[in-house]
Design a protein around this nucleic acid. Structure first.
Lengths: 350, 350
DNA sequence: CACAAAATGATTGACGTCTGTCAGGACTTT
DNA sequence: AAAGTCCTGACAGACGTCAATCATTTTGTG
């Protein structure tokens, strides 16, 4: 019961290997009648082309390119590290991954990179932002037959092939649910802290939290959101001020970055509000471990990168794939379900 | 800048292809001096054998076998479904997966299956239980060079190659942390409900919860655990009784199965305690969605199965792999971060 | 130096697919 | 009937590795 080969298909269809090959690879020049018989044989035998042999024969490599923001927030460092790791792991599968760093928040640079880099690869993964130029660039790539996968942050939902990242409204709702859970019986006052008011992701999270806290919990008041520009120093100053202004703050939801500043404020106090923040970084992890932070909502960048590559490969192979959204869910880390710290040495087969 | 082939290695080492091949595949009959030169060349060129070509040449298939408990709890159904799904996905990579169902909780049957099935495959994945017979069987397989991966439930930590599953103490701690979070300012009383007192996994979870709740929170009292034999009917009866006996119960931690019974009790009440249970099943999911359950701690069986297969493949290829424990963490699902419901239709590349 | 043993090189045919070429047959068109 | 299409089959050389055979060279021993 060997897997059928194309030779078997040809024999079953009563044609030569050449003809079966012409049908399989759509080279044309085959009579409709013969083509049908080949297709029938493929179906009845359950033939599946051996992709490894095919790639070997073609000398094919998969060239995937990642366009990542050049930014030294821990989150993007982690994302970059994940891509680098996959680079090694996938090489054995003929997948060549290259990374281009784009100045953060520079829509022009990103659009330009999309135009330029698109030619040199089979599929692109981009941490996108929503801007007309970028939508246009992705649409143009699609027209040229180059698929674009958006990563972490979506754009051009009509034109990109897939989005691999969390639903930020869902993430915000999750934060809201945690805050609500912790306020089951008490009154309270929630302080949301935005990284930047302009970022779509941050607004989505805020909206999500509000949706969960609104109405149903009159005892829980949500203050107007602070905005700290993702910077620890501004975070420290504004949060300190807010805590002074509103002694009844019982919960803080930090939506963006700059959490080092928040932690500094927290560790200077005896009593602290409930704190929920985003992204498991060395800072937030330490915050959890030291009991200064209650929950961290993470999007597991390493898993996102791995899934993005899986999707890109499926696209390149012309296979079907299932919606990655199902597997990318905001993950709640508490003090007690943290993954093992950092990079363990490899364990070898003995 | 093509990837170097074994021909390149041979040329660089100044030997023939045959000799390089003899070194690479340890066929023997090579002078130490030549062998060293080949190894040097491999190192300096960064040669990596093309596994796909090698497998093609050998006609090699990976035969992996899963020994799963024959049990119609939703969790094991989900586990089985995940294996079936991987069966299709991995066939293209020459990975043939077969499943043998073992009567649940029957250590003899499992040990017997381990002895019998081990011969017919390259690597075994087992939902194990801790019993001397099973430890012995796994140790015997290891001696015969057949690796065993324990799945969901560990055993014979010295002899098995890897464990792919959550740390149940960690899961229990996580549940405890959630309960604590929700009792920040109020007094309360927690009712733990065991599936079966004998199961190691359940005891671990209970211990974990106790570890988090003990001492630090004098306002939070933990009642003696109920035991409901993983059965909904017993669950309903005992929990109803407990709620009557202890009107001050503010939290329930359901450690095992039978949650349908618990949900029935909850929906009959106006006010309900905080509820944390395990495993995202149709029942627990509905409980979350209807607001009857607050949190579900899940171990993501589909991901576990996928990771187990990755590890098995690495073992079979003699590659290094990293400890799967880092990627398998108890996941907290709330009402708001549930994955998309069930099986979406496939989205095809357009 | 002779001779066996050990080491090496050369070669070949797989594995399943891709890609290209060439020849011949069937059929239509003038 | 000749010339032109369109289809089809046969074959060959690659891709990188495995596995086996056989011939040749080198080495070591007495």
């Amino acid at each position: 019961m060997r897997k059928p080969t194309l030779h078997d298909v040809a024999r079953a269809a009563g044609v030569s290997y050449s003809t079966a090959d012409r049908v399989l690879n759509a080279r044309g020049g085959v009579a409709p009648k013969s083509a049908d018989r080949v297709r029938d044989a493929i179906a009845t035998l359950g033939y599946e082309r051996d992709l490894h042999a095919a790639n070997l024969s073609r000398g094919r490599n998969y060239n995937f390119r990642f366009l990542l923001p050049k930014d030294d927030h821990s989150f993007f460092r982690a994302l970059r590290a994940a891509v680098d790791r996959e680079q090694d792991l996938r090489r054995a599968d003929r997948i060549l991954i290259s990374v281009t760093e784009i100045p953060a928040l520079d829509a022009d640079a990103l659009a330009h990179a999309l135009d330029a880099e698109g030619s040199a690869c089979d599929c692109l993964a981009v941490v996108a932002t929503e801007a007309p130029r970028i939508t246009a660039a992705i649409t143009a790539l699609r027209a040229r037959g180059i698929a674009v996968v958006t990563l972490v942050s979506d754009a051009a939902p009509e034109a990109r092939a897939a989005y691999v990242g969390i639903d930020n409204v869902m993430a915000g709702r999750t934060a809201g649910r945690l805050l609500r859970l912790a306020h089951a019986t008490r009154q309270g006052c929630i302080l949301p802290v935005l990284g930047s008011v302009s970022a779509r992701d941050h607004r989505d999270r805020l909206d999500g939290m509000n949706a969960v806290l609104a109405g149903e919990t009159p005892a829980l008041r949500v203050l107007p959101a602070l905005s700290v520009d993702d910077r620890p120093d501004i975070m420290r100053a504004r949060v300190t001020q807010a805590l002074a202004d509103h002694p009844d703050i019982t919960g803080i939801y930090s939506i963006g970055a700059g959490n080092r500043g928040l932690i500094e404020v927290l560790e200077a106090r005896q009593t602290r509000p409930l704190v929920v923040m985003h992204e498991l970084t060395p800072v937030s992890r330490a915050g959890l471990e030291r009991g200064l932070v209650d929950a961290v909502i993470d999007q597991k960048p390493a898993q996102e990168v791995a899934l993005a590559i899986d999707v890109m490969k499926a696209i390149a192979d012309g296979r079907d794939w299932h919606d990655p959204a199902r597997d990318i869910i905001p993950t709640i880390f508490l003090k007690d379900n943290l993954p093992a710290p950092a990079d363990n040495p490899q364990i070898s087969a003995s």
